[in-house]
Protein backbone atom coordinates (compact mmCIF):
# COMPACT_ATOMS: atom_id res chain seq x y z
CA UNK A 1 0.00 0.00 0.00
CA UNK A 2 1.30 3.41 -0.93
CA UNK A 3 1.85 5.83 1.89
CA UNK A 4 -0.13 9.05 1.67
CA UNK A 5 2.23 11.90 0.81
CA UNK A 6 1.64 14.52 3.51
CA UNK A 7 4.42 16.87 2.41
CA UNK A 8 2.32 18.72 -0.17
CA UNK A 9 -1.24 17.80 0.80
CA UNK A 10 -3.70 20.37 2.11
CA UNK A 11 -5.15 19.70 5.55
CA UNK A 12 -8.44 17.80 5.49
CA UNK A 13 -11.44 20.01 4.86
CA UNK A 14 -13.04 18.80 8.11
CA UNK A 15 -10.07 20.10 10.10
CA UNK A 16 -10.35 23.45 8.34
CA UNK A 17 -14.08 23.68 9.08
CA UNK A 18 -13.49 22.78 12.73
CA UNK A 19 -10.76 25.40 13.18
CA UNK A 20 -12.65 28.09 11.25
CA UNK A 21 -15.78 27.53 13.31
CA UNK A 22 -13.93 27.81 16.60
CA UNK A 23 -11.96 30.87 15.46
CA UNK A 24 -15.02 32.75 14.24
CA UNK A 25 -17.00 31.97 17.38
CA UNK A 26 -14.12 33.14 19.53
CA UNK A 27 -13.40 36.33 17.55
CA UNK A 28 -16.91 37.47 16.66
CA UNK A 29 -19.02 35.98 19.46
CA UNK A 30 -22.09 35.48 17.28
CA UNK A 31 -25.56 35.13 18.82
CA UNK A 32 -26.17 31.78 17.10
CA UNK A 33 -23.81 28.83 16.49
CA UNK A 34 -21.57 29.01 13.43
CA UNK A 35 -22.11 26.28 10.85
CA UNK A 36 -20.85 25.56 7.33
CA UNK A 37 -23.84 27.46 5.98
CA UNK A 38 -23.18 30.59 8.03
CA UNK A 39 -22.70 33.58 5.74
CA UNK A 40 -19.47 35.23 6.79
CA UNK A 41 -20.11 38.80 5.72
CA UNK A 42 -23.89 38.86 5.52
CA UNK A 43 -24.56 37.17 8.88
CA UNK A 44 -21.40 37.56 10.94
CA UNK A 45 -20.42 40.96 9.56
CA UNK A 46 -16.89 39.68 8.84
CA UNK A 47 -14.74 42.50 7.46
CA UNK A 48 -11.70 42.14 5.21
CA UNK A 49 -9.34 42.99 8.05
CA UNK A 50 -10.93 40.41 10.33
CA UNK A 51 -10.79 37.88 7.51
CA UNK A 52 -7.06 38.48 7.29
CA UNK A 53 -6.72 37.90 11.03
CA UNK A 54 -8.70 34.69 10.73
CA UNK A 55 -6.48 33.40 7.90
CA UNK A 56 -3.34 34.25 9.84
CA UNK A 57 -4.63 32.45 12.94
CA UNK A 58 -5.59 29.49 10.80
CA UNK A 59 -2.13 29.34 9.22
CA UNK A 60 -0.58 29.19 12.69
CA UNK A 61 -3.05 26.68 14.07
CA UNK A 62 -2.92 24.23 11.15
CA UNK A 63 0.71 24.99 10.25
CA UNK A 64 -0.18 25.77 6.67
CA UNK A 65 0.50 28.53 4.15
CA UNK A 66 -2.60 29.87 2.42
CA UNK A 67 -2.33 31.21 -1.12
CA UNK A 68 -4.57 34.30 -0.99
CA UNK A 69 -3.90 35.42 -4.58
CA UNK A 70 -7.13 33.94 -5.93
CA UNK A 71 -9.27 34.73 -2.90
CA UNK A 72 -12.34 36.79 -3.65
CA UNK A 73 -15.46 37.77 -1.74
CA UNK A 74 -17.40 35.35 -3.92
CA UNK A 75 -15.26 32.50 -2.62
CA UNK A 76 -15.94 33.28 1.02
CA UNK A 77 -19.71 33.77 1.06
CA UNK A 78 -20.26 30.98 3.59
CA UNK A 79 -17.91 29.21 5.95
CA UNK A 80 -18.23 26.14 3.69
CA UNK A 81 -17.19 28.18 0.65
CA UNK A 82 -14.10 29.47 2.45
CA UNK A 83 -13.25 25.96 3.65
CA UNK A 84 -13.46 24.74 0.03
CA UNK A 85 -11.07 27.48 -1.06
CA UNK A 86 -8.62 26.81 1.77
CA UNK A 87 -8.63 23.06 1.20
CA UNK A 88 -7.63 23.69 -2.42
CA UNK A 89 -5.24 26.60 -1.88
CA UNK A 90 -3.06 25.82 1.10
CA UNK A 91 0.07 23.82 1.63
CA UNK A 92 1.83 22.52 4.75
CA UNK A 93 4.61 24.75 6.03
Amino acid sequence: MLEHDTSTASPPREAIVRSLTALLERMLRPATPVTERTQLMDELGLSSSLALEVLLELEDELEIQIDVEDLDEDRMTTLGDLADYLAANSTPR
Binding site: T32, Q39, E43, G45
Partner: peptide, 15 residues
Protein backbone atom coordinates in the same frame (compact mmCIF):
# COMPACT_ATOMS: atom_id res chain seq x y z
CA UNK B 1 -33.00 41.98 3.82
CA UNK B 2 -29.24 42.30 4.22
CA UNK B 3 -29.71 44.21 7.48
CA UNK B 4 -32.16 41.60 8.78
CA UNK B 5 -29.75 38.74 8.00
CA UNK B 6 -27.00 40.11 10.25
CA UNK B 7 -26.59 38.13 13.43
CA UNK B 8 -26.69 40.77 16.16
CA UNK B 9 -28.71 43.91 16.83
CA UNK B 10 -25.51 45.97 16.84
CA UNK B 11 -24.55 44.80 13.34
CA UNK B 12 -28.10 45.29 12.05
CA UNK B 13 -28.37 48.82 13.43
CA UNK B 14 -24.93 49.88 12.14
CA UNK B 15 -25.71 48.56 8.66
Amino acid sequence: SRAAALGTAGLRDRF
